[in-house]
């Protein structure tokens, strides 16, 4: 890594002040240090935000669960209350990386992580996300890339948690300047759809404060498909949530990950589920609708089939 200065912060305000325009926040460090070791990023100052008191607190209120930005994935995985309230969240977090990663990785960092596209992550290649003006994956090796390819960059969002949090309707609290923005997961990734240089909507200096998950008696479920059994990125991931009363779904959401710049859902697909007793046939129709506008590239057509299968399985899992 290139040389850098280091400071620890004790409040979000001092974190932001210290980091300024040239610094970066150091949480778990898996993403940041990995990029710095390839000299893809070279911030002059790292601000360790883990010591901020209460920043990793898990809080239950009457209407929601609130997770501080530096809550580790291991904390989430081991939390009995969260597991009971949001089984899908538990399933998603248990599959992130390895235990060594989950012990230090944070929910904020997981959401804010940069693309895993091997062109982006390559020390000697320049693409949209590194100041260039091409997507090297589009005509290249794109087996792991998006199948919704309207954006000029076809690198997909790979955060497992983003998919299930989208299904749960979570809100991400972000400090920008003097304001606290409250974003849906869609909004957190909206900029990645429009701007091929963006990984998400966070700007320099923006600091995720907390993630709020409404506790509104929704069920949740999460599944992913990978090449290896464990410690592998998802080829496709899928999360579903709904209120289920006597077999009938309402307020349904079915979301796909690793297929688009943001967790992917379609209102019409969600609405097809509402009021229904979901069976395999309906689930398959929902899957078709959700994947209808997929425009896979040369080497990832297979993701469409996997996505459809996961939609069906996740909905049936939700129902059971």
């Amino acid at each position: 890594m290139k040389p850098f200065s280091y400071a620890t912060a004790l409040t979000p305000e001092s974190a932001r002040e210290l980091a300024g325009q040239e610094g970066a926040y150091l949480a778990g460090g898996n993403d940041l240090l990995g990029l710095m070791k390839e000299s893809i990023l070279a911030p002059k100052l790292l601000v360790n935000i883990k010591p901020i008191p209460g920043f990793n607190a898990i809080e239950q209120t009457a209407r929601s669960w609130i997770l501080g930005a530096t809550t580790t994935l291991a904390q989430i995985e081991n939390h009995a209350g969260l597991r009971q309230a949001f089984p899908g969240l538990h399933q998603a977090v248990a599959e992130v990386g390895s235990l060594q990663i989950r012990n230090v990785a944070t929910i904020g960092g997981n959401l804010a992580q940069h693309s895993r596209c091997w062109y982006f992550r390559h020390r000697d290649l320049v693409c949209w996300k590194k100041g260039g003006d091409t997507c090297l994956a589009r005509e290249g090796e794109n087996r792991y890339h998006s199948i919704f390819t309207g954006c000029a960059c076809i690198s997909p969002v790979v955060s497992n948690l983003s998919v299930v949090l989208a299904a749960l309707g979570a809100t991400v609290h972000v400090r920008r300047g003097d304001q606290t923005l409250k974003w849906s997961i869609n909004e957190l990734y909206a900029q990645a759809w429009d701007d091929p240089s963006a990984h998400h909507s966070l700007g320099s200096g923006d600091l995720i404060l907390k993630i709020e998950i409404p506790a509104d008696s929704r069920r949740s479920a999460y599944l992913q498909a990978s090449e290896k059994a464990q410690f592998d990125w998802a080829l496709v991931s899928c999360a579903a949530s709904a209120q289920v009363d006597q077999g009938r779904f309402s307020r349904s959401r079915i979301v796909l990950g690793a297929v688009a710049p943001a967790p992917y859902q379609v209102n019409e697909a969600n609405q097809m589920l509402d009021g229904q007793a979901v069976d395999e046939a309906l689930a398959a129709q929902v899957a078709d609708r959700l994947l209808r506008d997929a425009t896979p590239v040369a080497h990832n057509q297979y993701k469409v089939a996997i996505a459809k299968a996961l939609v069906v399985r996740t909905l049936l899992l939700l129902r059971s």
């Binding site: 091997w118 062109y119 390559h122 000697d124 290649l125 090297l136 005509e139 290249g140 090796e141």
Partner: peptide
């Protein structure tokens, strides 16, 4: 081993 045709570089 995955080689990128356009750049001639190793991707993995």
């Amino acid at each position: 081993r995955v080689m990128d045709r356009a750049s001639g570089m190793l991707l993995n």
